[in-house]
Amino acid sequence: MTPKRQFKIGLILLAYVAFISLGLPDGLLGVAWPSMRADFALPLDALGMLLVASTAGYLTSSFFSGRIMARMGVGGLLAASCAATGGSLLGYTLAPSWWAMIPLGVGAGLGAGAIDAGLNTYIASHHGESLMQWLHASFGVGITLGPIIMTTGLNLFGAWRVGYVVVGVAQLALAGCFAVTASLWRQNGTAGEADAPMRLTDFQTPLRETLRQRGAWLSILMFFIYTGIEVTLGLWAYTLLTESRGIAPAIAGLWAGSYWGTFTVGRVMAGLYAPRVGANRLVQISLLGALVGALLLWWNPAQAVSLFGVGLVGFAVAPIFPALVSGTSGRVSMRHAANTIGMQISAAGLGAALLPTVAGSLARYTSLEAIPVYLATLIVTLIVLHHQSTR
């Protein structure tokens, strides 16, 4: 293996490790929320405050990710991101009140946003659809481990804070690893090649010009709704299964984890066939599968059907986000792709905060059984938007 190839593989592996670290905190919250809510004596939909706080940090850092990467390099960005996230998660374990959690949520969002946008742009620019799917499968690995870590902490110690200690320490350890390897990212896999093709990151298109593209706005809406779908079920599945459908907490915790487990498997498999199927076709098939899963969860003739519906939605939605990222150039052209990817990631963060919050409000004022209905409605909306984007 040539040194150049070793260099490229090393960068890819580091990117995958970074995405595993991004997924861990997201996987903790859904299982921790019932216990956290009881500790702080909060209403069901108070989760929205923490989501909005973390999203504010996420949107800020993802929007300015290009400038941050230019100054710090990708390695420095990874190190700073993991340090900010790890410090914030450990802060959760020491928070004396709910209101102390809110600024810590901003810090966790700042840590996640820039690395998410930066690595999506990097992989879209330098690699194909398979590596993009596997990058996001790495996120699925982290978000699958999160519920398992939290469920284990609750079962063994009866405390949600234990899970955040484990993940916070792991994040700080990763920050140290990325700081040591920061120099690897100061080079580019095509540096020194006079005949290297133009990359997405080579264009310096004004943002206002990109905002005039219809495809850019359709992309923003699709990412906003997609992450709402993904995070809504991830956050509320455990609460729905335990508080509304009477499933034992240990079983519900495992199946909440299975949502992210099938999600990860779906992305690993998609990396094998995505180049042959194509991004648009892959999104269409995935959305239909997700709709079937949501309808099964809504129908709920038996506990087994509900549990199967959760897993099916996780498996089906898995390839959508990376496929939409890979298809960005087709919707807006290469000239506008880098700008659009950054805006898509920002919109995804906003959707991940706002749409699950709406689900919580619906559940509070009606019942938790409103969640699968809401989920199916979002999936149908995304099907319509994606059809419009491919016309």
Rank of each mutant, 00 (worst) to 15 (best):
I9M: 04
L13T: 15
L22C: 11
P34M: 01
F40V: 04
L47Y: 09
V52H: 03
A53P: 13
T55Y: 13
L59E: 04
S61C: 11
M69T: 15
G73V: 08
A80C: 08
C82A: 15
A84Y: 03
S97K: 00
A100L: 06
A100C: 11
A100V: 13
A100F: 14
L104P: 10
L110K: 04
I115R: 03
Y122G: 03
Y122R: 12
S130A: 13
M132D: 04
W134E: 03
L135D: 04
H136Q: 11
H136E: 06
A159D: 15
V169N: 00
A170I: 13
T181S: 14
T190C: 06
D202Y: 09
T205P: 05
T210P: 01
L211W: 09
M222T: 11
L235F: 14
G253D: 12
G253W: 08
G257C: 02
G266I: 11
A290C: 02
V292M: 06
G293K: 01
G293Q: 00
W299P: 10
A304C: 02
F308D: 07
L312R: 07
P322D: 02
R331F: 05
V332Y: 08
N339G: 06
G349D: 02
L350E: 05
L362K: 04
T366P: 07
T390E: 09
R391G: 15
